[in-house]
């Protein structure tokens, strides 16, 4: 049973018929199964971020359909949308987006507080989740007291505390050094493998992508190719590099392998 269904999704910036129209996405379709860890890669301007914004219903599609957990978010009204986001989607951003006025623990329980969960249940969940991503020892610290890797793991804990149907991650390692990136990706892997969390991650970092089980490559708003992981991560990384060079003319972002 797929958690996310995307069908003929298109996004045009500017008037659709005019010559200045930019097709960010050209009728793409794919599905994400329950418990999958899907990566979406592509050069700048390939439509990665547009796709993520549409999935998060931060933007309205020009055409096509999205279904998350059997619901089309674009059909929801404002209040329903808020509840839907709160319960079904978790977000991880490139720049963490933690509130620096709150402690690590308070940042993590923010989605629960918005949902008016009982304080006792919050405590239980926060302990469990913090343990999973390896930040149990810093729960009472403030954001400025912890490292960037720890900040991103806090953000991950926040994204999964309400046990969403899918976690959407936008370049989660984009601002991190290789060691922190490693920690963060391991946290994602553990959530995916041990708890069956469904994760959809947009990245242009082949190292981060090598943690995924499947990767879709986007180019100019279309799905260019697809890669499934069968053997070890090292080999998968090599396959990703190969796939990227097949796509050609790519990565304007400077890239170094980060093993």
């Amino acid at each position: 049973m797929p958690v996310v269904k995307v069908k003929g999704l298109a996004k045009v910036y500017g008037a659709e018929k005019s010559t200045s129209a930019t097709w960010a996405l050209r009728k793409i379709g794919f599905e994400v199964e329950q418990g999958e860890f899907l990566g979406i890669m592509g050069p700048s301007g390939s439509g990665k971020t547009t796709l993520l914004n549409l999935l998060a219903s931060l933007d309205r599609p020009t055409g096509g359909k999205i279904e998350i957990a059997g619901v089309d978010p674009s059909k929801l009204r404002d209040e329903e949308m808020a509840v839907f986001r709160r319960r079904n989607i978790g977000f991880v951003f490139q720049d963490f987006n933690l509130l620096y006025t709150l402690s690590v623990k308070e940042n993590i329980i923010l989605p629960l507080a918005l949902d008016n969960v009982e304080p006792k249940d919050m405590e239980n969940q926060v302990t469990k989740v913090a343990h999973n991503v390896g930040i149990a020892h810093i729960l009472d610290k403030y954001v400025f007291e912890i490292s960037q890797g720890e900040q991103q793991r806090t953000a991950i804990a926040r994204a999964i505390i309400n046990e969403p149907e899918v976690v959407l991650a936008d370049e989660p390692t984009g601002n991190l050094d290789s060691k922190s990136a490693n920690h963060v990706m391991k946290a994602f892997t553990s959530l995916n493998e041990d708890y069956g969390a469904t994760i959809l991650m947009v990245t242009h970092d082949p190292f981060a992508a090598s943690f995924c089980k499947r990767i879709l490559f986007l180019k100019d708003g279309e799905i260019f190719s697809e890669l499934r992981r069968s053997d070890g991560r090292q080999k998968f990384f090599q396959q990703i590099i190969d796939a990227l060079s097949v796509m050609g003319g790519i990565f304007d972002e400077s890239y170094q392998p980060n093993f």
Binding site: D78, R85, R87, I89
Partner: peptide
Amino acid sequence: SNEFGLLTTLGASKHQ
């Protein structure tokens, strides 16, 4: 505005 944008993506309703 960044804070409010974040809270919205985390599922805060306009009412909240």
